[in-house]
């Protein structure tokens, strides 16, 4: 009889409930379109090509961080240290590049030193999180809150609290000013990363294992999936993606900023969750992360253009997060 109780919760899906499930699946995209049209009627500039490009570019950063969070949210975790890690990577890469510049390295090797330093710092943060969570059994909340503090400390110490200047132009050309057929670098990079990550999540052993671990960690262990290794990889991937985003943001500001990450951790979680990534694990992916990022960006862009007070925007964002999870809950309930 041991099997029957959970079976209750997941009754056979009837045609009607499947239809309702479909409706919930489309709730967010529909809301997004409605929102967009509403803002467009309120202010014609919303539809202008410049603004559309702006939205796309803005979304690409948020989406990258939301994708990073989605990777670990799928495993029933999250990463609070993402924001400080972004600051740390920004400062670390900038310090490495300025040091290389003063040593007289040529711009290309300076660029590589910066990229490698940044990504390595990110990967190291992720490995720390993953090892503490998977091997020591500490909850993701405490583990990443710990590295949150550690990363803040390192970022402010390395930079002495001030922006780190003196990076080669090539860096910001590659990651910010450059474009491919007129499409800004940030968008190009995010699209490429998104496609690769999507393939990784849906077509590789790692991705498959990630979803199974997130859905039922005990069953995954019994089936011989190396649960701990999968978790460590997930956190390392999350922080590496965040590091890439940090490098892109650094290229945009033109200096290594110790406060660059700010409240990015929670914003990224919010975007991923609003898009339909479930904190209960096993559900979501690149699609939900991008959708959530787009929604949050369109919302703030529209509110900015229609001159809604920034403080009111915070309230709206808070409400959207709650409504988002309540809807998600309802969507799960229909299953």
């Amino acid at each position: 009889m041991a099997d029957l109780a959970p079976a209750l919760a997941l009754a056979e899906t009837s045609a009607r409930s499947r239809w309702r499930e479909q409706l919930w699946q489309w709730a967010l995209p529909i809301a997004l379109v409605v929102l967009f049209l509403a803002f467009a009627t309120a202010d014609s500039r919303v539809f202008s090509p410049a603004n559309l490009l702006n939205i796309a570019q803005q979304t690409s950063y948020v989406a990258l961080f939301a994708m990073a969070q989605a990777v670990v949210i799928i495993t029933r975790g999250f990463d609070l240290s993402l924001g400080p890690a972004v600051s740390m990577v920004s400062v670390g890469a900038a310090v490495a590049m300025t040091a290389a510049v003063t040593n007289g390295s040529d711009p290309v090797s300076v660029l590589f030193i910066g990229l490698i330093a940044g990504l390595a710092l990110g990967a190291a943060t992720g490995l720390f999180n993953g090892v503490v969570i998977a091997l020591l059994g500490v909850s993701p909340f405490v583990a990443t809150l710990g590295s949150y503090n550690i990363a803040i400390g390192i970022a402010t110490t390395l930079s002495a609290g001030k922006p780190v200047q003196g990076m080669p132009d090539l860096f910001s050309t590659l990651l910010y000013r450059g474009n491919v057929f007129g499409v800004p670098a940030a968008i190009v990079i995010t699209v490429i990363v998104g496609v690769i990550l999507h393939v990784a999540l849906t077509r590789t052993v790692f991705g498959r294992s990630l979803y199974i671990v997130g859905t039922n960690p005990r069953a995954a262990a019994v089936a011989g999936i190396p649960v701990r290794r999968v978790l460590v990889c997930a956190y390392a991937l999350c922080s590496s993606l965040a590091a890439l985003g940090a490098l892109m943001l650094t290229a945009r500001t033109g200096s290594g900023e110790p406060n660059l990450g700010g409240s990015l951790s929670l914003q990224a979680i919010a975007a991923a969750v609003v898009g339909g990534t479930s904190l209960a694990g096993g559900r979501g992916g690149v699609g939900t992360a991008v959708l959530g990022a787009l929604f949050v960006t369109v919302l703030s862009n529209g509110m900015n253009l229609t001159r809604i007070d920034g403080y009111v925007q915070m309230v709206v964002l808070g409400a959207i997060i709650i409504v988002g999870v309540v809807l998600d809950r309802a969507r799960l309930g229909t299953r």
């Binding site: 041991a2 859905t215 005990r218 096993g282």
Partner: peptide
């Protein structure tokens, strides 16, 4: 013995 808990990823 307990397939829901240890055997299967139910939503997959």
């Amino acid at each position: 013995a307990n397939r829901a808990a240890e055997g299967l990823a139910l939503t997959r």
